[in-house]
């Protein structure tokens, strides 16, 4: 179990380092921005018109903005470490509350899109892998290359044009009903499929041509039995590892998709906060995304260890 523990510790360390870098980056950005920080905070608190030099001065003292930078940095990192991310400059609500609300939307969209992508990719990839060079293989390859060359927002715009504007089957944006989920989830799924189909196909091709598969038949197993006993598990290793990793890469997709479909997830929150320079929310969203990335990577590692005994040996070494 030593190996598993090592992997877990490594990922936790990675998550902490990611968090530290993000928090530090945000601190640097906040202080590197042009203009007086206290004035900006005051403007955000009481509104642009009512800011006076006195309120700015008061906020400077209250928030400790007059202390040396290094002390402020220590304070900042301390707060982050305690999970105190402050309040949103825009809404005034605690950041944690905002994050929890939006994260549930993102998780929902991410899970549905991810599952959908494997519902599409698994049958196509396996069929392509069973007949490399065949018609299914060539068609899925063309599909994958095309989709891989389309940025997510183009896929989304294409789907909106077709299903919302031309056919009028589905609503183009929003989040109130299940129908609102269809286009964003499909957009996400299609952008994931571009990369998972080749992975699945190659895993199947490689396992089918592995010598131990041939040898299993020399030992007397039928082709079907050989694939059941030896093929599935070995082909599953790269696929499962990749699938888990892809769940982490959903992040790139959902920022764009949520903005495009006006869907109130973390990505949309982050983009709005970035445009408004709402630092506490930006940092909070960044931390959640960074942590989610680390957790999913950890899950991917553990999955691989569970499926592939060789991984454990490597982790020990």
């Amino acid at each position: 179990m030593n190996g598993v523990l090592r992997v877990i510790m490594l990922r936790i360390g990675q998550a902490l380092a990611t968090a530290a870098v993000l928090a530090s980056l945000c601190f640097v950005f906040v202080h590197a921005l042009p203009g007086d920080l206290a004035l900006r905070v005051a403007a955000a608190r009481v509104g642009d018109e009512r800011v006076t030099p006195e309120t700015a001065e008061r906020i400077r003292r209250e928030e400790g903005l007059d202390r040396p930078l290094i002390v402020q940095y220590g304070q900042w990192m301390g707060n982050v470490a305690q999970g105190d991310l402050g309040r949103s400059l825009l809404s005034g609500k605690p950041v944690t509350q905002e994050l929890a609300y939006h994260a549930s939307f993102t998780l929902q969209l991410g899970l549905i899109g991810w599952l959908l992508s494997y519902l599409i990719a698994l049958p196509l990839g396996i069929m392509a892998g069973f007949r490399p060079g065949g018609i299914v293989d060539r068609m899925t390859n063309a599909l994958a290359v095309t989709l891989a060359s389309l940025p997510t927002f183009l896929v989304g715009i294409g789907l909106i044009t077709l299903f919302a504007l031309t056919l009028r089957w589905l609503p183009p944006a929003g989040f109130r009903t299940g129908a609102h989920m269809v286009l964003p989830a499909f957009t996400l799924a299609l952008s994931l499929v571009a990369f998972s189909i080749p992975v699945i196909r190659n895993a199947v091709v490689e396992v089918r041509s592995a010598f131990f598969m041939t040898y299993a038949r020399v030992k007397g197993l039928t082709p079907a039995a050989a694939f059941r006993h030896h093929g599935v598990r070995n082909a599953a290793i790269p696929v499962v590892t990749y699938a888990a990793l892809q769940f982490a890469f959903v992040i790139d997709g959902f920022v764009v998709i949520e903005t495009l479909f006006n869907y109130p997830g973390l990505g949309e929150l982050l983009v709005k906060a970035l445009i408004a320079r709402d630092v506490p929310v930006i940092m909070g969203a960044g931390l959640v995304i960074g942590f989610a990335f680390a957790v999913v990577s950890l899950l991917a590692d553990l999955m691989r260890l569970w499926f592939d005994p060789r991984g454990l040996e490597e982790a020990r070494a």
């Binding site: 131990f212 299993a216 006993h229 598990r233 290793i237």
Partner: peptide, 11 residues
């Protein structure tokens, strides 16, 4: 010829 390749690595 290559006995290691003839055995399923995960079983």
């Amino acid at each position: 010829q290559e006995p290691s390749a003839a055995l399923d690595p995960t079983m």
